[in-house]
Design a protein around this nucleic acid. Structure first.
Lengths: 218, 218, 218, 218
DNA sequence: TATGAATGAGTCTTCATTCAT
DNA sequence: TATGAATGAAGACTCATTCAT
């Protein structure tokens, strides 16, 4: 009997989780095609197959759906980038990892990427925006912590963290956006080497400082 | 009497133009603080001092206001960048001009920049989005036309146009966004040289190709 | 085994009855603070500790809870008043009993009294209202039956029954309401004698019949 | 032209005021038949002939309609009672005026009276309830100020103000309610003398004390 | 009997837009 | 041209009630 009840509960949990995913999935699709504002709960309901009540049982409001989508997506992005960076040991490898992962996520989850770039913050109220900002700051700090040692060893120029990200992520992000909007007709992943090399070069410390180290890692 | 009527007309034109500007100004401010969707015509009315009727005399709809703001802003951005680029003769100068102008516009018209980056396309319907895309394409083509000769002369690597922009504008755009969102605490203009140098280096043609040419642009 | 099952049944009955009381208690509290309409079953659930299902096991609907509260309260009020009146033999004692009991119930069960006075009938549909009216009519008849003999003996004036109640209960009810709403800062029970005397005097038959008293005030 | 525009404005004001009255009238009717909660804006719209937008142009919310109805009605009641009381010079005349006016208003504006008694406070939130209470307190003070001199002259017993009202208004209010609910089949106005006399007697100072006032009542 | 997730009809309210003056 | 009251379609959300477990 215990196992039955446990099974029941588990099965219900699974059903709930599936429904949750269905709703988020439907919402993401609609948000992307029409924007968050213009998307109606009725559309989400119809597209997800859930009832109005179910949706509100699982999410407090439409904004919470948008917010959940953004936060979960952001976390996935952050996690993947940090994991990829940590898998590398050399400065160059890490820089390349950032660029490559950004493009890889873009290609593998274009919907999510579009949402994060284009819609995510558009409708955020002050409080939510602050939360996003905090999450971003935490990510930036974690990421910079991976690069800091290389800066201290003189392998990378000593620049303000945000400038780092601009030099490293900026081009990749721009290209990703272009691709997502249909402007860039090629596979963004084919540009990884070019972008990674550009990023790497732009972070090299000024000439004189570079001497002591004979060869940088390939 | 003719002159009076002319004066009258002129004065009316001036008044109309001023009112138009007031409305756009108020709308931009509100759109930025709250997003386009959440902003109501009533708020625009109150903030601009115009009456509901006046607003609808000057603009067909709320969307048209958002659209006007976006298009006029985009045009201003495009014009400034192209003008700055054309003022330079050398490849390096032109690359630098793109970077510097982007940051300059950001600093001088942060509201406009935020709007263009963050909100502009979020709520656009398919048709409007297509129009934006066309405008962007025209700009891209004009800009690329300025660089093409340098490519042909072997001064710049031969890359797909969008990749160019990603390498040149990407870092500046990223830094601008960071600054606009309060993440980058320094003056973005101080980073022009770093970003311009990075952009320049990333566009250099592969080594072997670079030799034959006796003088690189300064 | 029989006794066990009996015990079980009894215990269940007790548990059920307790739960019923908890629900009614929680509901009364909420109804009073917010009104019946604005109170949600969810609030009743949370405040009573019962589950939604349990509540619907014990009550057909929210209206039934409100109705039960009203009817049970009304019956308690009626019963107490009638009992107190019947305990007295003299006309004066009975008049006084009505006044005193009304105030006593008010002070002892202020929540119930407030509910009966303020909320009870506000949301009642036609059918329910009719039921309430019938209950009230029955009470009025029972109560009047206690006074009728005194009227016939010439101890009390011969007035329409409702006018009786207005003269007897009216002031006490008014004072009770004032007290319940925080307007009357003293103990209502201290006013019993004044109110009872006023009621008594107002019910005395006209002068000539009364013998001793010569002139009423103009 | 000025006059035309003035006329236009005036005419608009009249139209607006009429519409306002129509809405309030329709709402009062519905509130009384069904209660405030169950009445929908759609019903008010249909009954008043106004459009949804118009209603919300004139009133912020359904609650504001209910509130307006209550406050305006309460003010009318207060004003009438105070005016009638002030029109009298003698203590007895004033007591009688309170009783008579209460019943008169009941008979002349039964809907309003029912609303004030039965529904008015049922759905009030804390803030609104406080406002009602303040209005009532002001009225009570004004009314008591009319009686105070008589108390000081020893014509009326010295009782707490609320007790006064209970003795004076209580019976009339009770009878009015009975009549409104169909329990009292006679014309309430015919009972004015009985109620007024009862009220008057109940307020007389204790016998001995009534002449020179040696001791205040215990 | 007990539970609480699911349901969906029904509400209030908003707001872009129109139009009589 | 200017005004702002009026419009009503459309949307987010609530909540009493049901029902599978």
């Amino acid at each position: 009997m215990t196992s039955m009840s446990t099974n029941g509960r588990v099965r219900r949990h699974e059903a709930t989780a599936r429904r949750r995913r269905e709703i988020l999935h439907a919402a993401l699709d609609l948000f992307l095609r029409q924007g968050v504002g213009p998307t109606t709960m009725e559309q989400i309901r119809a597209a997800s197959g859930a009832s109005t009540g179910s949706i509100y049982h699982l999410f407090r409001s439409k904004d919470e759906i948008a917010h959940t989508l953004f936060v979960e997506g952001m976390r996935r992005y952050h996690d993947r980038v940090l994991a990829a960076v940590r898998r590398q040991r050399t400065a160059r490898g890490r820089i390349r990892a950032v660029v490559a992962t950004h493009l890889r996520i873009t290609v593998e989850e274009p919907e999510l990427s579009l949402y994060l770039t284009r819609l995510g913050m558009a409708d955020a109220d002050a409080e939510t925006a602050a939360e996003y900002r905090a999450a971003h700051a935490a990510f930036a700090q974690d990421l910079y912590a991976c690069l800091r040692p290389h800066v201290e060893r003189g392998e990378l120029a000593d620049l303000p963290p945000e400038l780092y990200f601009s030099l490293v992520v900026g081009p990749a992000a721009h290209l990703a956006r272009s691709w997502l909007r249909g402007r860039y007709p090629h596979n963004p992943l084919a540009a990884v080497e070019i972008l990674a090399r550009a990023a790497w070069q732009s972070l090299l410390p000024p000439r004189r400082a570079r001497r002591p180290r004979p060869r940088s890692a390939s």
